[in-house]
């Protein structure tokens, strides 16, 4: 959501965050903060609904082809899944901490936490591509008609892979978008835009990141753990 910076006060020596004013069409900074938060919660609702379509597809196909899902999920490595879960959980903690840092005006720690969160996003992506998608794709465990694995557990196993790639792929896209947003926050933090009275951007980026984490918390057991 937009956090606009209109009309900068005259005292140029004060830190940037203390000079930022609310957008002209809001009556106060608090009103702007509330509006941005409501907006973000609504946006998160749309994200949940987007994924609900994929969860729905998962439920329906699981009911239709239980053996394909059982056989397919055996091919996933729960260890890498767990490590990635850990990576996201830690990053959720650091983004929450970075909001606290902004509130307490701990600028160095704020930047560190943001950078660390973005690093976790990239680490998750690296593990997903390098150690999960890559080898599986090479082995022919691909979605739908691209499936080329010599001994499937049941003839319907390609459907399992379609659901797997569609769900985790859409999630991965969200991880990448979230990482990009956090990097933008980092660049802004570098300029001194965030402080005790001005941290809307980090707050809403954090909300988004928690959602990305939360969706993985649902995807992980459904895909990796339930056999």
């Amino acid at each position: 959501m937009s956090t606009e910076s209109h009309g900068i006060a005259t005292d140029a020596s004060a830190p940037l965050w203390s000079r930022l004013k609310h957008a002209h069409h809001f009556r106060s900074k608090e009103e702007e903060f509330d509006a941005c938060k409501i907006g973000m919660w609504l946006f998160l609702t749309t994200e949940v609904l987007l994924f609900s379509g994929l969860f729905c597809a998962y439920a329906i196909f699981r009911a239709m082809y239980p053996e394909a899902f059982r056989g397919g999920s055996h091919h996933l490595d729960w260890l890498w899944g767990s490590i990635n879960t850990g990576v996201l959980l830690i990053s959720s903690f650091t983004i929450a901490w970075s909001i606290r840092c902004a509130q307490m005006n701990q600028q160095a720690l704020l930047k560190f936490n943001l950078a660390f969160t973005a690093f976790c996003g990239l680490l998750f992506t690296g593990i997903k591509f390098g150690l999960e998608y890559g080898p599986k794709w090479a082995a022919g465990k691909r979605p739908g008609s691209l499936y080329d694995y010599p001994n499937p557990s049941t003839p319907n196993e390609p459907v399992w892979w379609s659901v797997y790639y569609a769900a985790t792929g859409t999630h991965l896209l969200h991880v990448l978008i979230g990482t990009a947003v956090i990097l933008i926050m980092l660049a802004r933090a570098q300029k001194g835009m965030y402080g005790p009275k001005h941290y809307t951007g980090i707050e809403i980026a954090g909300l988004y990141w928690h959602l990305v984490d939360l969706i993985w918390i649902f995807l992980f057991p459904l895909l990796y753990l339930i056999h």
Partner: peptide, 14 residues
């Protein structure tokens, strides 16, 4: 584009 088969009955979809 990729015939992932979620909606294609020939690939087990619906």
């Amino acid at each position: 584009l990729f015939h992932i088969g979620i909606f294609d009955p020939r690939l087990g979809g619906d």
